[in-house]
Design a protein around this nucleic acid. Structure first.
Lengths: 344, 344
DNA sequence: ATTAGCACTCTATAGTATTGAGTGCTAAGC
DNA sequence: GCTTAGCACTCAATACTATAGAGTGCTAAT
């Protein structure tokens, strides 16, 4: 699959034109807007070749051509020049009032920031309990044998679960358990605690370990089918931006899209993939099996909290998005969020 | 504005017909589907009267007539027979797995329940910090002079805020403050605490009260323009149901609707109104100034936690919704949620 | 190899005719 | 005096036709 320099140049012109206008690109348009010293007829021949190679398609015979997912992938991998974020946008990110309220609000505000700057929909996957390093744990006794377990990370993330006990423990007992847990488990993730508790279980089965096991079980049950991924929370912001995108002017398409958003499960799986990858990832159209959708792409980056990757965030929009500006935007936001979480 | 028995009967027929078909109702339809022993011509005369009174409008001359907001209001106030919830639906509410996860998830699941049963969009306003009675308060020291304040209600609601201090307190100090706060303030709402703290301030300005003041200030700043209402969190579920409603088959209408949903502020104000009212409230179209939208209505009820009204929930859908089934549904869900919060 | 020229295709748009649902009015009937 | 049959009228929705325009693919000349 060798592509001549000129073919590449024309493919780039078509993609760029389509990204900015959302209109199928004809041979005349290419020669006019990007004067390559070449006639429309020549361009037509090359476009025909590109179509045969699977880079372009025609919506119908008498229309221009439109880039395929394969074309976008090629474009991003081999000829995209990612600009550095303009000073003004960087300012905007830094000045955005993300700090208000609690951690959930921070997540929500971040989606809005992503959305506001990209004009697409912003998504943020919150840190997962199983992967979060906790600093402080606390059991609070409520009425009726209910105990609330509260876990606090150094970043101020608060996770909690209700546990219903058969026996009624006093707050004093719970405080002793909390103290034990803080002594034994501080600096561990939930996942690590789980295996440590299982170890302790072997040694002796006292009230402490029984409560802890119960607690672990409740936590696990609450996650979808015991899958750790599902524990993560997904925040979405700027959904209404989708209505401004000409690609999605179709009612049925829109319906499909919103259904997919409500089924957050799949989106989470996809975001989870990006946890392991370095830098900004781009998922184009049906490239991934979790959120395949004709014409829709995601730009995703992981963010760090105190050194470790703890979550991912990104932007979801049409495949024909201006990657050269969206990519640095997502990148910068991820770094700012990371800094905010690890602050000072 | 006296309405004869027959006029009322016809108005009811028109409203019911429109609710079930979403098609403008003509005089022939009325006589056919609800045989009232009356000719279409007579019905036409009466319909003309009803239009003059503001109960009906014609989309265009050669169409049937459609009920106005005024008509729905009249219908709900004077001739709606609210069925009791069918056994099967009640079962479904009781069996819905609402208990999983933390309090936020409970809220989110409740919106899904409302949506699933009504086939419209479900909304739940979470309990507001200012109105929540707290059982347990805790300050956790994080790195860099940051302190996380965690407040737990008896129902297991957890609210938290980050505070950044100039001085660096030890966790020991914070524990003493927590103990003091728990002793002095347990069983109070945040609003009540605030005024109590202000009282204490007058007596002496020690580290405790300074921290408390700082904390109160942070909390207040985080809420929108200091308005207490804005502190509340709003959960929305089943947005995609909107796409199945023939009334909203218009793209522009949909866009407007989703914009309104993202601006949660107004919706919250409206839900706040229903806090004070007893029973199920219905807001029709442009009746309320916070969420006026042509053709959209809300059915809202407040729910209780341990005796007090703590929040509201409801359903948002087209004005032509089957109120006789939606009202008991919202009512029942509110009661179930209340029981779940106050559980045992 | 490139390109000008041309026939061909197909969508989008505008214009026109037709249909049918529904109304308002009038005059006759009970 | 209320009710109703009859009829002319209105207007959206639908189908059909004509036209314009953008773009292609092919061929022959450069």
């Amino acid at each position: 699959m060798e592509l001549s320099e000129r073919s590449r140049e024309i493919l780039r012109a078509i993609i760029q034109s389509y990204i900015s206008t959302a209109e199928p690109v004809g041979s005349r348009t290419v020669t006019k807007r990007y004067n390559l010293g070449i006639s429309p007829a020549t361009v037509r021949n090359i476009m025909s070749d590109l179509e045969e190679l699977g880079f372009l398609v025609q919506p119908h015979t008498s229309a221009g051509r439109v880039p395929t997912d394969k074309a976008y992938r090629f474009y991003i991998d081999t000829m995209l020049e990612v600009k550095s974020l303009p000073r003004q946008q960087e300012e905007e990110i830094l000045n955005y009032p993300l700090h208000r309220g609690d951690f959930n609000q921070l997540m929500q505000e971040t989606t809005k920031l992503l959305s506001a700057l990209s004009h697409y929909t912003g998504i943020v996957m919150a840190p997962k309990p199983a992967e979060t390093v906790y600093r402080h744990m606390e059991f609070v006794r409520l009425t009726g044998g209910r105990v609330l377990a509260i876990f606090v990370s150094n970043a101020g993330i608060v996770h909690n679960r209700m546990i219903i006990l058969d026996e009624d423990l006093m707050q004093k007992d719970l405080e002793r358990i909390s103290a034990f847990l803080n002594y034994e488990m501080a600096g561990k993730t939930l996942r690590e605690m789980r295996s440590r508790v299982l170890q302790l279980m072997d040694d002796d089965k006292n009230t402490y370990t029984r409560l802890l096991m119960k607690f672990m079980k409740v936590w696990q049950d609450a996650s979808y089918e015991g899958e750790v991924e599902a524990e993560a929370e997904l925040f979405v912001g700027g959904l209404s931006e989708m209505f401004n995108i000409p690609d999605f002017k179709d009612y049925e398409k829109m319906k499909e899209l919103f259904l997919a958003f409500e089924e957050k499960h799949m989106l989470l799986k996809l975001l989870d993939l990006a946890m392991d990858a370095e830098g900004v990832q781009v998922y184009i159209g049906s490239e991934n099996k979790y959120f395949e959708m004709q014409g829709i792409s995601l730009v995703v980056a992981s963010y760090r909290g105190e050194g470790n990757v703890v979550g991912t965030l990104g932007v979801i929009g049409p495949s024909r998005m201006p990657y050269n500006t969206v990519i640095p935007l997502v990148d910068c936001t991820a770094r700012v969020l990371g800094r905010l979480i690890s602050e000072r």
